[in-house]
Design a protein around this nucleic acid. Sequence first.
DNA 1: ATCCTCCCCTAC
DNA 2: TAAGGTAGGGGAGGAT
Length: 615
Amino acid sequence: MMNIVERKNNGLGDAFSAGSRSATAPSRRPVAFESFGEYMAVKEQKLRVQQQDDAMASVGVLQVARGPLWGVCVWVDGRTDPPRDALRTLVTQAGGRFETYLHRELVTHVVGTHFARGRAMELRRAVQTRRGGATRPLYVVKPAWILDSIRAGRPLPEWQYGVDEISRDSRQTVLPVSRPGCVPSEEDADAMSRLDLPPSVPCGPETPIESNTSLTEEESAASESSEHWQSDKMECTDFGVSTSAPTMAYALRGLLSSRENPHFVRDFFAQSRLHFIGSFRETYETILRRLQSDRQPSSLDRMPQTLPRRDRFVLHVDMDAFFVSVSLAKRPHLRGKPVAVCHSGTGEHSRAEISSASYEARARGVRANMFFGEARRLCPELVMVPYDFSAYKAACEVLYRIFFAEADLVEGVSIDEAYLLLQHCSEVERAEEIASRIRQRILQEIEGCTASIGIGRNKLFARLATKYGKEKLGKGSQFVLIDRAHPDGFGSPMGAALRSFLDEVPIRAIPGVGWSTEARLRDAMKATSGSSQDNEVLLVASVREHFNLEGLEKLLGSANGNRLYRFLDGMDSRPVQPIGPRKSVSAQIGWGIRFLSTEEDKVRSFMIDLSLVAR
DNA sequence: ATCCTCCCCTAC
DNA sequence: TAAGGTAGGGGAGGAT
Ligand SMILES: [Mg+2]
Ligand SMILES: [Mg+2]
């Protein structure tokens, strides 16, 4: 993966860094890609088989099966000598396995020479726990262990090859490099002058951001830093290349490959839905600037308001199947049909990921993040509609114009979603009227689009109301979650109606509870009470029943635990808050990265292109 | 104590 | 064929 980050410092100018990193197991963090973990697992398995096949093809089946590293499973961290590619060949031909990701259950030997502090601590912990436990031990060794073991024809004792640096301070290496149009800090200018890098490409006088640019080789590269780079030009040559890229089994060609398409960065971002979604803050800043210059009297520039109060309501507005709806405005003949937005949906085996599915498609089981081919098997009439990012952006601007005109305070969440605060609004009927008007305006002013709105006394209930409304009532829904027995009531204790609603909410629907938190809650509950309803949906009620405040704080950390604890009781003190300017900007690509270790110039120009995207 | 770094997690 | 990004909050634990 290649990445660039620029963040605000303590007023001393901006730090800017870029680099490449090898991946840690993405299966641990499927978060947004429920189906993606499975996809990766299949891909990794194919890769293991292929690596073994390759090894057997080149040195023979017997040689591999009787190899000295049979039963050994290696994972390489950071830059090594010999490089990762060479180690892979050596290991697989000696009967060992070579993992792309640090799967803790599989890997027996971590190979490296220098480790970043964080990684070092992590490994130290892993070594400790595995030493005492019933599982196989985990070794952290230098690359020489592999070479010597192969030479000796058997795995040598690991202790002679321990990595001393694992316990010493070793920060991630930062390689200073110039970002076009930016003034490097003195320190970095000095560092750069010692490097053999091309001069900055001059760039317009506008946006004279004070920033320094640097390339990091993450995952603990050589800790000698710039001296190392200065003295060893060959090292510099394979900068940014020791990534997950060469481990991918297949070669991408033509425009899909970073090494064959000189406009790869531009082309990739022009097509990436995640880039588009992720660029919301940038889009939003642009929209805000435009609205401000229009001088519309509106809720711009208001201060955040503490919640709750009896005369305040929170609306949560979320567009229904946003991408599909916008795309269908130009294709009215497809309305009412099962439609999905994705790239090139041809064939039953398409691996294009669906970004948005129409409600008709959802009724047939089609979901976002599904491969198009899979969806096609569920619903053969499914129609593919291409992305139209600029149309989404235009719709977004209209949407926010409506928000700012109708609400007292706006907190943008995403391209199609926001929290609105209604102040001086005592009756829920009034809040419902405003919500209806907003939905009506969206219907009229954004062609083909409907929105769902949730109404509550705080963000938590507003959000849950939208979710529930969409699920039970479908698109264009409006749903209220307040305590009707105490119409101006809020806080604790929560009314009985709200409480029993909350009881039945899946814990995963609570803000901040994702894939990992749910698993931790599950595990903790299983460990103490042995209650093992494994495939049951975990509900708020059972989590509330099982944990006290201390328990949650211990499990999730003090801030997260405390917040969840309050959410379980319907309490949410997060204010509706206008979002300010970003504290950092970044750009990264983890798709289609292929470089040869001889292509330093290509890598360099790739990184420069990438740095220009982060703005 | 507080800061800093390197993560992990979450949301869209 | 197919486009696995972006930003923020927060925790662990060593450095100061
Ligand atoms: Mg939506
Ligand atoms: Mg949304």
